[in-house]
Amino acid sequence: AGSAVDVLGLDNKGAVEAADAVLIVVPWDGHEELVAALAPVLAGKLVISCVNPLGFDKRGAYGLDVEDGSAAEQTQRLVPDAVVVGAFHHLSAVSLWEAEGPLGHEDVLVVGDDRDAKEKVAALAATITGRPGIDGGVLRLARQLEPLTAVLININRRYKTRSGVSVSGIPA
Rank of each mutant, 00 (worst) to 15 (best):
N52Y: 05
K120F: 01
A99W: 03
G69P: 11
E146R: 13
N12Y: 13
L141F: 15
P171T: 12
L91R: 08
A93V: 14
P40C: 06
L96F: 04
V121N: 09
T129K: 02
K160L: 01
P102I: 05
L152W: 10
Y159W: 13
N52W: 06
G130Y: 02
V83M: 13
V16P: 05
V7T: 07
W97P: 00
A125L: 03
L145M: 14
N154Q: 05
A87Y: 04
D29S: 12
V85C: 14
A125S: 09
E146Y: 08
N12R: 14
G9T: 13
V167D: 08
V165R: 06
E17M: 02
D135W: 02
N52L: 04
I170T: 04
A37V: 01
W28P: 00
P171M: 09
P53C: 06
D11K: 12
S70Q: 15
V26T: 10
K58Y: 04
A87V: 08
A82G: 06
V94H: 12
V35D: 01
I170Y: 05
L54P: 09
R131G: 08
D65R: 15
P171A: 12
P27K: 09
D6G: 08
K118R: 07
A122D: 01
A18V: 04
G60F: 00
E119M: 03
V108F: 05
N52R: 10
W97K: 14
I134M: 07
D81T: 01
A87T: 10
D107T: 11
V84C: 07
A87L: 11
